[in-house]
Amino acid sequence: MQATPGEPATVTPFTDTKPRDRTLTAPRHATALDKPVGQWLTNLRRPDGLGKDPERAARRAEQLAAIDPDWNPGQLGWTVDWQRHHTGLRALLEDGGTLDEILPGVTYRGDDIGRWLARQTRDWTRLNPEQQHRLDELGAKPAVRPQKTAARTNAKTGATKGSDAFQRGVTALQQYVQREGTTVVSRAHVERLPDGTEHRTGIWISNQKTRRDKLSEQQLATLAKLGVEWAQ
Results as ranks from 00 to 15, higher is better:
residue 58 A to T: 12
residue 141 K to C: 04
residue 128 N to E: 11
residue 113 I to T: 12
residue 62 E to C: 00
residue 101 E to I: 01
residue 122 R to K: 14
residue 151 A to H: 12
residue 91 A to F: 00
residue 159 A to S: 12
residue 133 H to G: 04
residue 148 K to R: 15
residue 76 L to T: 11
residue 96 G to K: 01
residue 62 E to N: 08
residue 113 I to P: 07
residue 100 D to Q: 14
residue 88 G to C: 11
residue 75 Q to A: 13
residue 85 H to N: 15
residue 142 P to H: 03
residue 69 P to D: 09
residue 94 E to S: 06
residue 136 D to P: 00
residue 124 W to N: 03
residue 77 G to L: 11
residue 75 Q to I: 06
residue 125 T to V: 11
residue 140 A to Q: 05
residue 49 G to M: 12
residue 140 A to E: 01
residue 153 T to H: 10
residue 131 Q to V: 08
residue 86 H to T: 09
residue 123 D to K: 02
residue 147 Q to N: 14
residue 78 W to G: 02
residue 63 Q to P: 01
residue 81 D to F: 02
residue 133 H to T: 12
residue 127 L to K: 06
residue 55 E to Y: 07
residue 160 T to H: 03
residue 67 I to R: 04
residue 135 L to S: 10
residue 86 H to D: 05
residue 90 R to F: 00
residue 148 K to I: 11
residue 70 D to Q: 14
residue 103 L to H: 11
residue 63 Q to Y: 11
residue 106 V to D: 04
residue 58 A to E: 15
residue 96 G to E: 10
residue 147 Q to W: 00
residue 122 R to L: 12
residue 101 E to W: 06
residue 64 L to E: 02
residue 75 Q to Y: 06
residue 60 R to L: 01
residue 84 R to W: 08
residue 144 V to N: 03
residue 50 L to T: 03
residue 146 P to I: 05
residue 148 K to M: 11
residue 124 W to A: 05
residue 121 T to N: 05
residue 131 Q to R: 06
residue 116 W to R: 10
residue 102 I to H: 02
residue 152 R to S: 10
residue 75 Q to H: 14
residue 155 A to T: 15
residue 122 R to N: 05
residue 89 L to V: 04
residue 127 L to V: 12
residue 144 V to G: 01
residue 55 E to W: 05
residue 60 R to A: 15
residue 127 L to M: 08
residue 105 G to T: 05
residue 136 D to Y: 05
residue 143 A to H: 07
residue 136 D to L: 07
residue 59 R to S: 12
residue 101 E to F: 01
residue 117 L to W: 04
residue 139 G to H: 10
residue 105 G to S: 02
residue 149 T to Y: 04
residue 59 R to F: 02
residue 61 A to V: 07
residue 57 A to G: 07
residue 135 L to C: 09
residue 98 T to S: 15
residue 57 A to P: 06
residue 122 R to Y: 07
residue 113 I to E: 03
residue 144 V to C: 00
residue 92 L to A: 08
residue 88 G to E: 08
residue 52 K to I: 11
residue 85 H to M: 07
residue 91 A to W: 00
residue 64 L to N: 03
residue 111 D to G: 02
residue 64 L to R: 06
residue 109 R to F: 00
residue 119 R to S: 12
residue 95 D to F: 01
residue 75 Q to E: 15
residue 159 A to H: 13
residue 144 V to L: 12
residue 84 R to V: 08
residue 82 W to G: 03
residue 119 R to H: 09
residue 137 E to F: 01
residue 122 R to C: 08
residue 125 T to D: 15
residue 66 A to M: 10
residue 77 G to I: 13
residue 124 W to C: 03
residue 70 D to N: 09
residue 150 A to L: 08
residue 52 K to P: 00
residue 106 V to M: 05
